[in-house]
Design a protein around this nucleic acid. Structure first.
Ligand SMILES: [Mn+2]
Ligand SMILES: [Mn+2]
Ligand SMILES: [Mn+2]
Ligand SMILES: [Mn+2]
Lengths: 220, 220
DNA sequence: TTTTCAAATTAGTCTTGGCTAAAAATATGT
DNA sequence: ACATATTTTTAGCCAAGACTAATTTGAAAA
């Protein structure tokens, strides 16, 4: 069984939404994520239900099936491998890769992905710190917390970002908060949740809660 | 103005057909090339005419416009650059690249193609010996003749193949006729047009007219 | 337990790119 | 010149994937 490009995009969105929320995914949320209207989503859910990549009972909710997860993880794997390629080999900045990867992830060729993976030396994480599923869909997730949830004096390493928008990534570039940076929480303002952090034992940085909630840290 | 994937594929076929035949292109020929029905072609010709990438007078014929040529050459450029990438970097065999390149050529990202070109070191020819148009659509074509049109004792170098099907390319691999090979026509049978050629001053090869008509030689 | 409201689905339409069958236009043979 | 054959186009249909407007449903509030 094969999925269309549109079906792959929907399924990927559904997978991401069900991972973060843990419970059932709302039609409106999918529409927001996909930038389509709820009516279009209903239609697609029926189709995805027929293909048995989700279990769908209308007006109630949906659950992604094991088969659906495999498809979604395959697409995510391709997306992230291409992102690595663009950054490592073609010198793209990390905020320039997403839209192109969104197209490249739909190229159908198992051989291509296998060779690309080998060519990139079997990377485990994409440029935003997200783990790359292996060919069987297995993901080695690193335990991580949002930076805004850390307490004063706690330390760790930036391992990923939640928001991959170009605007956010360019901001991080500007202030020098990159993946792999070692950080320490120096101060935390209870009033607005803003933080002062030390980066690489050299530079101190002030950051709003909005920013820090989108930075993921592996604690140490 | 932007073209859909289907429009790009049709326009590329029209460009190729009008290059080889030199005269106007038949609806039936486009249908054969695209593996669609003539009725579908008529419909697409109307659309391409409206977008002014061809000049179309129904029941008469069509001519590709300057704008159409630029679009076609841009797609051809992307196709051939990806083929080089697949062979040079991902170790694809030259008979494995066409279908994947047929997909990759539709990825929309000027930056991607510019970077890919640089990464591949601005190649001038694809793995089948076909010239790669530059970013302005300029092609430096090598003068070439079909091997079956050469006479006894004439010499040259294989520079390209007309048929890029996997079956044909694998046959060439097997007999050792590769791009760049120096050849000499030893004998030519008038009855069936078959040839005996000397490859790299070592190996002699018998080849039918069907095969030799698909091998392009730069004479010397 | 009703009423009310927000979320979700259905109905109907559009565009793209296919198809078959029928009609029209051109080309060919006598 | 006329009949026939071939090519091309049109007409009408379908599926995918979008939309708006109308309707249905489940959940929340009164
Ligand atoms: Mn991404
Ligand atoms: Mn995508
Ligand atoms: Mn193509
Ligand atoms: Mn080629």
């Amino acid at each position: 069984m094969e999925l269309t490009t549109a079906e792959e995009n929907y399924l990927k969105a559904i997978y991401h939404l069900s991972e973060e929320g843990k419970k059932s995914v709302a039609t409106n949320d999918i529409a927001a994520e996909m930038k389509t209207k709820p009516a279009s989503v209903s239609d697609m859910l029926r189709k995805l239900g027929e293909k048995e990549v989700i279990e769908y009972r209308k007006y109630y909710g949906l659950q992604i099936t094991e088969s659906g997860k495999r498809f979604a993880l395959q697409t995510i794997r391709k997306h992230r491998l291409w992102e690595v390629f663009l950054v490592e080999k073609l010198n793209f900045a990390w905020d320039e890769v997403h839209e192109v990867a969104e197209q490249l992830e739909h190229i159908q060729s198992p051989l291509l992905i296998q060779r690309l993976d080998a060519y990139l030396n079997y990377p485990k994480f994409d440029p935003h710190g997200d783990p790359i599923p292996d060919e069987f869909g297995d993901v080695r997730a690193r335990p991580r917390v949002q930076l805004n949830e850390m307490e004063i004096d706690q330390t760790g390493q930036i391992v990923a970002v939640k928001d991959s928008s170009a605007a956010f990534l360019r901001y991080l570039d500007k202030v020098g908060a990159y993946i792999g940076a070692r950080i320490k929480v120096l101060d935390k303002v209870e009033f607005d949740g803003s933080l002062e952090i030390l980066v690489d034992q050299k530079k101190t940085l002030f950051m709003s809660k909005d920013v820090s909630a989108n930075i993921l840290v592996q604690q140490s």
